[in-house]
């Protein structure tokens, strides 16, 4: 139990130092843009591919269950759009970024720790938080927000296509239903969620990377732990944020 308290304390210390670094030290613009390119451009097609299938499953499952319960699936377009904007777009994007970007950050920082590269940075008077964490934090946060908007649009577009092809609701019927269910603030809340998820991923990945132990399984273990904890944190944060946003309706 003491270890858990110590770990939580260490994580909060890292958050505190990061916030101080973020506001008190100059931003490394070049590194931030390099990371943003890696996060956003590199993850785009994986996210597009996955959210398309998520949209298909959402439409088909909603239709199947609605037909089973109320013998009618006319509410599927509106209901699916709402689900996509409030949950799927942000959460699926964040979970995919966790496995692609988060794992990469933990492995990169972990191997830098093991090979004393982080000590070498400190010896040069370079703060590893400012050099490694801040550019990744800003890039992943911005990248997650941008990708969330793209994912929402693609997901709704895929849902519209599948509604037309399988359920027989034309795009105009779909958009009319969507207009009735969905509000602009749903998209805003989705982007706010993505912002929090985007901050969580590099924070947790760097935390495990910075405390990576040497040895054959050190980096592997840091990577696994970062993905597991980041995924759990995203699910938990999603609950907290959804609950909070419910007060705005």
């Amino acid at each position: 139990m003491t270890t858990i308290y110590r770990d939580v304390y260490s994580f909060l210390e890292l958050v505190k130092k990061t916030v101080m670094s973020l506001f008190l030290k100059p931003l490394r613009v070049k590194e931030t843009f390099q990371q943003l390119y890696f996060v956003a451009n590199g993850s785009l097609w994986i996210i597009v591919f996955c959210v398309c299938f998520a949209a298909v499953v959402t439409i088909l499952e909603s239709s199947f269950h609605m037909k089973l319960v109320i013998q009618n699936d006319s509410m599927v377009p509106g209901f699916a759009s709402l689900l996509i904007l409030r949950e799927l777009g942000a959460v699926v994007t964040a979970l995919l970024l966790t496995s692609r970007v988060g794992a990469g950050i933990a492995a990169e920082v972990g191997s830098m720790k093991v090979t004393e590269q982080i000590d070498a940075l400190r010896m040069l008077g370079i703060d590893p938080i400012q050099f490694l964490l801040i550019p990744r934090l800003i890039a992943t946060t911005l990248g997650c927000m941008i990708l969330c908007v793209v994912a929402n649009l693609i997901c709704i577009f895929a849902a519209m296509i599948i509604s037309d092809q399988v359920l027989g609701y034309t795009p105009s019927m779909f958009l009319t239903a969507m207009n009735r269910f969905v509000q602009f603030r749903d998209l805003i809340f989705s982007v706010v969620k993505a912002m929090f998820f985007g901050m969580t991923i590099p924070m947790i990945s760097c935390f495990f990377g910075f405390r990576c132990k040497s040895g054959a399984d050190g980096v592997g273990s840091a990577t696994t732990q970062s993905v597991v904890f980041a995924s759990i944190s995203i699910i938990f944060l999603d609950f907290i944020l959804s609950y909070t946003f419910s007060y705005f309706y």
């Binding site: 090979t115 004393e116 590269q117 000590d119 070498a120 010896m123």
Partner: peptide, 10 residues
């Protein structure tokens, strides 16, 4: 400092 594992930026 020269580190034990050289600590070169790979």
């Amino acid at each position: 400092m020269l580190f034990q594992k050289n600590a070169l930026f790979d």
